[in-house]
Simulated scan of single mutants.
Amino acid sequence: MNAPISSTWWVRLGQLAGLTALALLCAFDLRYGLASGMGVVDALRALLQVGLAAATAVVWLPVHRPESRALPIAALALGAVSLTVTAGFLLLGTSGAYLLGGTWGLAESAGMIAVVFVVTRFGAARFAPGAAVVAALAAAALPLRAGADLVYVIFGLLQALGAVGAAAAGIYLRVVASGRERAIALVRAEQRAEFARDLHDFIAHHVTGIVVQAQGARFVAEQDPQRVIVALEQIERAGAETMASMRRMVGVLRNPDARPDAPLAPLAGVADLAPLLEGHNGTTNAPARLYVDGPLDGLPVEVSTSAYRVVMEGLTNARQHASDARSVAVSVRRTPDWLLVRVADDGAGPRTTPARGHGFGLVGLTERVRALDGTVTAGPGVSGGWVLDAAFPLRAAVTR
């Protein structure tokens, strides 16, 4: 699913803030590096430091994908160049005590610490530690360009602590993101396994029916040939639905994350929505009402069970997240080509976070609906409250 618009705006604002801070520090470096009375060497040094600061922005500014291999390489190269420049200043004797008359490159220092954060957060695990260490060493060594006095050593230690803090923050966010990805993968695997079990039960049911109808057709063939034709039509229809379901089940089980060894669970479909709503109404102050438009008999079983799961998830969300809701409307509408399901509550207050579940219910539901080429959306309603919509194609469920 695409990232929310609000998240994109936060990223853009963060990039803008980082660039603004880097530009101010670069202006500070240039102001004191090119001050009147400074020599040509100091002016060139100031320009070089600003150039290196701009190079750090090339590394930390873009939005990187997790486990990026190019990011550690870029950070390693940048840290090595910065350390080489620092060593050159020390060897050539161009460093000096000028704490108030110039800088050692504050913009480059901030940029290098940002590089440490980015590489520990998004860099490939195999190369990120080494690249982060080199970048942190480069940040710690930068004050030595101004001299080897104790004050610059202290500043170097402070920048080293800043780099360590940036690395710790990057590692923490990396662990959090990794845990969330594993949780999402587990939810999807469990949903695939549940869907595959439903399809297995459905296939077994239809195959049994086909066998029974074929045996019955043998006995009535000589007495009533017309009934044989009806039986063959029923066998053909059941066989087509079974073949389509078998294809979907094979596709689900081919996924390496699926868990076919999970315990069996009974099937529940749209015919069981009334008991589901009764159970919900007995545990909440927001009664749910069911509205049905169109016949619900003859639905493919996988569509029926998935629609049931949509309603169940919608009722669970309303009970957990909309404590101020007064009613929940459950609508099931059937058209010639679609089965449309909607669960809408009238809660007006802000959504609360449940103590358990971590918000992964919708992830698993989306996985299940998409397996049937359907769509599912969730968000605020036009007139308030929260709306969960799902659409299941009916023709594709049979002909695919």
Rank of each mutant, 00 (worst) to 15 (best):
Q191F: 01
V59I: 15
G130S: 05
A221P: 00
E194Q: 07
V176D: 12
A371K: 01
A46T: 12
A348L: 11
L273S: 01
A35L: 12
G298W: 09
R188V: 15
V228H: 02
Q213R: 09
T242P: 03
L158R: 07
E194V: 04
E190S: 10
G147E: 06
A132E: 01
D337W: 04
G209V: 00
G216L: 14
T305R: 07
G18Y: 08
T208C: 00
A3E: 06
L199C: 10
E67K: 10
D201M: 04
A140R: 02
T284N: 03
V328I: 08
L173A: 14
V58A: 15
L91N: 06
A288C: 09
P143C: 03
P275C: 07
H64C: 04
T352D: 03
R259W: 02
E233P: 00
A166V: 13
V11D: 08
L150K: 01
D337A: 15
G361A: 14
R370Y: 05
G39V: 08
L296I: 09
A344G: 02
S323E: 10
P393F: 14
V85L: 06
G102Q: 10
T86R: 02
G156M: 04
L83N: 03
V85A: 10
L157P: 08
G130Y: 01
V116T: 05
G51V: 09
L76T: 14
G147A: 03
V187M: 11
A80S: 15
R326Q: 11
Q320F: 06
V363M: 09
Q226M: 00
A138Y: 06
H64S: 10
G349Q: 05
A390C: 10
F122K: 04
V363E: 09
A231S: 08
A238W: 04
G298R: 12
P66H: 14
V228R: 01
N317W: 02
M246P: 00
L142R: 03
Q213K: 12
W104P: 02
V341F: 07
D261I: 13
G364W: 05
Q215D: 05
L30H: 05
Q159L: 14
T208P: 00
